[in-house]
Amino acid sequence: MRILISCVLLVILSLGLVFALEQAPFGSNQIDNADKPGRFYLNQGMEKTGAANVVTSVVVTYRGFDTLGEVTILFIAAIGLGAVFHSRKKVKRYEKEKQSASLILQTGCRFLFPLIVLFGTYVFIHGHLSPGGGFQGGVIIASAFLLLFLGCEEKKIPMKSMNTVESLAGIIFVGIGLAGLYWGESFLENFLPRGMDYMLLSGGVIPIIYIAIGFKVGAELAGIVAGLIERNP
């Protein structure tokens, strides 16, 4: 009986949603109107900012303030977890030794770890030239640290260096914004020279900001995973 009522309600709700959303012009060429921001970004994004990847120039330059907010949200998540875990005890050593991995797994993890870190670094350094960017590269680096935790357990993640890297990267991001305020006219303005297209050092402050974001996200997520594994619930 309850399942019947919930199915009927679900059908009514979906019909209502379909009727309402049908009028919304998803996928149409709304942005072809020349004064809409979308068309402006596509037409002039590469000339104005010098980054070949338009998505990167949107994320870092045109809506850079939102990116600062998103980076802050990740920071809040990491700190919040640290605050809640502060009162929990660490997992004891003999519990960990019971579950150590096999020899193939340990060797494989030790071999793969620098390769994955290299790949993640490639993704965030070339964020303005190819798809990818700071967030994606940072998460790839964090998954490399996760692999290290699962495979080789005697290596420890140095938490103090992670915290220092994280906060230095955050300060660099805010500092670049304030430098834009000082040398340009507005916060987060692109004040460095544009450079040649498709070269690594092009796009003004965009590569620097993405490198800072990549380090920050990687350090934060690695810290979150470390905190989860090492503490009792």
């Binding site: 920071f75 906060s167 991001f173 805010v174």
Partner: peptide
């Protein structure tokens, strides 16, 4: 802008 950025920057610098 400083109304928003000053608390934000200080919070980022807190671990240091």
């Amino acid at each position: 802008v400083l109304l928003i950025i000053v608390p934000l920057g200080l919070a980022f610098a807190m671990p240091l």
